[in-house]
């Protein structure tokens, strides 16, 4: 028995394809303490992250290459994401997938990270403030055996404040 599969790529969803965020300046410059927490979390114990002598060939201590993707922190006055759980209409999924981008209004309940493609230019350094620009490159639906799946392809550009490129990322988020 076949069932009608809803088309989640509505005009409202189609309208956000191509949306570009304003530049999102990281809340604070890259800090040695957060570099430490990050390299410990990813179990990368190379001394280039804290030892000036080991980092001399980079011109000083650096952050792990993938760090910029995870460097945007909540500002002091920004809404507490955990407080969203108190909203009666909140279903547990935040569909504004990047700061400065509109929601992808697809009422599927599970949000998963499908993976990344990185183009890497250089390490971020302590004291640099990372600027993120994001774009919904594509949003499309596939109907699999387990039901409809909506893919949201997001291009993210990470630069320094002076416009030096650190990392480009293509991230596929999945709603199902």
């Amino acid at each position: 028995m076949s069932e009608m599969v809803p088309d989640y790529i509505t005009p409202a969803v189609r309208a956000v394809i191509g949306a570009v965020s304003p530049p999102q300046l990281a809340t604070h410059p890259v800090e040695p303490s957060e570099i430490r927490r990050f390299h410990q979390a990813v179990m990368d114990h190379a001394p280039r992250y804290w030892d000036e002598a080991a980092a001399a060939r980079y011109g000083g201590v650096v952050a792990p290459m993938g760090f910029p993707v995870h460097a945007h922190r909540r500002a002091e006055d920004q809404e507490d994401p955990l407080a969203a759980m108190d909203r009666p209409d909140f279903d547990g999924v935040d569909r504004a997938l990047r700061p400065g981008l509109p929601e992808v209004v697809v009422p599927l309940k599970r949000l998963m990270n499908g993976g990344y493609e990185y183009e890497l230019f250089r390490h971020a350094r302590p004291g640099e403030r990372i600027v993120l620009r994001s774009r919904y490159a594509d949003i499309y639906q596939r109907n699999g055996r387990t039901g409809p799946i909506v893919f949201v392809v997001i291009e993210d550009s990470y630069e320094t404040e002076t416009g030096e490129r650190l990392l480009l990322s293509v991230n596929t988020m999945i709603l199902r």
Binding site: A41, V42, D44, M65, G66, G115, Y118
Partner: peptide, 28 residues
């Protein structure tokens, strides 16, 4: 998933040695 990807990126960095330059990386 991004944690697993970051671990994989770290292992790639270690495989290729101190002076290698990572140009592209992808994971699913």
């Amino acid at each position: 998933g991004p944690l697993m990807a970051s671990w994989l990126l770290t292992i790639v960095k270690d495989w290729m040695g101190r002076d290698a330059r990572l140009v592209r990386f992808a994971d699913q």
